[in-house]
Structure formats: C-alpha cells, structure tokens
Design a protein around this nucleic acid. Structure first.
Lengths: 73, 73
DNA sequence: ACTCTATGTCGAATATTTTTAACATTGAGT
DNA sequence: ACTCAATGTTAAAAATATTCGACATAGAGT
C-alpha cells in the first residue's frame, strides 16, 4: 500500500473552517472518521469521488486540497 | 457499482492530443486500456492517483478533465 | 484526579477498483 | 473479401479503499 504521490491540506482546511473535526468532515463527506484520518495522513489514495466531496466541503477546487508531488512522471 | 457523480472529457482530450488511443493513454498512466475505457465511460470512480496521472498526460488541471455534476449536496 | 472529545491505530470484514484474458464489433486500408 | 487496429464487454481474480469495533493517548475543562 504505497503512499500516494500527492500531499493534502485537509488538516489545515479543517481548522480554517472553524475547528471542524475529522468526524464532522466524515459526516459531511459520507465516510467515517477513520477514513478521513487515513487520507489526511496520506496512508492511501482516496477515490476521486471522495476527493471531490472533501474539496466541496471547503468550497475549494480539488487542487487546492490535494497537490501532486511526484518527481518522476 | 453506482455511476460516479461527475463526467469527464477524456475521450475528447485523447483526440485533441493527436489521436491518442486508450491503449496509449493507459501505457502513459500506468493502467490497462480496459481501465481507461471504463473510466472514460463513467463505469466507476478512479482513484485520485489515477485521475491525477490522466490529467497530467494532457497537461491539464484535474478539473479540466473531470467535472463534478451532482445536483444533491 | 476525573471526564470528555479528538485523534491514532489495528485487525478483520466488506466494497470497490484494477488486472488479466478472452471474445465480439466496427471502420480503414489493401 | 481480408486484415488489422481500436474499442466494447465480460467474468474471475487480485489489489486497494473503506468500514466497523475496539482500545490507547493526549489535552482541555471541572
């Protein structure tokens, strides 16, 4: 289960969005708090659908939440 | 296996990118041609990593390739 | 010290994506 | 008519994401 080649700003965005907890975000996205925790820590690559839903919770474009960071192509 | 709440322009982008075939794109992305075909037809929601790699093949931001289209939320 | 909430983590179960191999169709070129 | 490349499709297996339940820790407030 290799770590994904991108980083994310979920943790920061949660706090900027008024101390939103992992559980809150999970509820709004429709996944569990464990899933949010794992994605936040880059443990795996979420589905595009979940990624979209997270971005929409913050009213941000996808790429404001997830940033590609692979050196290779 | 519900269809994902977004559309994509992969087919168009392939042709704009010089008649790139599903197989070519699959090779560049690192997945099989069947996977490209399934994503192109909206059969399921790819991983964020695959979505990013596809977008990068076309030098486009993710949201130029995949467009959220859910009425709910 | 106690309690609560938020978070980290883990193992096992379930769901979804991706692969592989195979066969069918269509259109272009010869 | 034949061939070949591109695509559609399908079933089964493999890989990966997600859930669920549980337990641990750290910090804030009382």
């Amino acid at each position: 289960m290799a770590k994904p080649p991108f980083t994310n700003d979920i943790r920061t965005l949660r706090f900027l969005a008024g101390e939103m907890t992992q559980g809150d975000l999970g509820d709004r996205v429709g996944v569990t708090r464990q899933t949010i925790a794992a994605i936040e820590q880059g443990k795996y690559s979420p589905s595009l659908e979940v990624a979209f839903r997270i971005a929409r919770c913050f009213d941000k474009p996808l790429e404001a939440v997830f940033q590609w960071s692979d050196d290779a192509d």
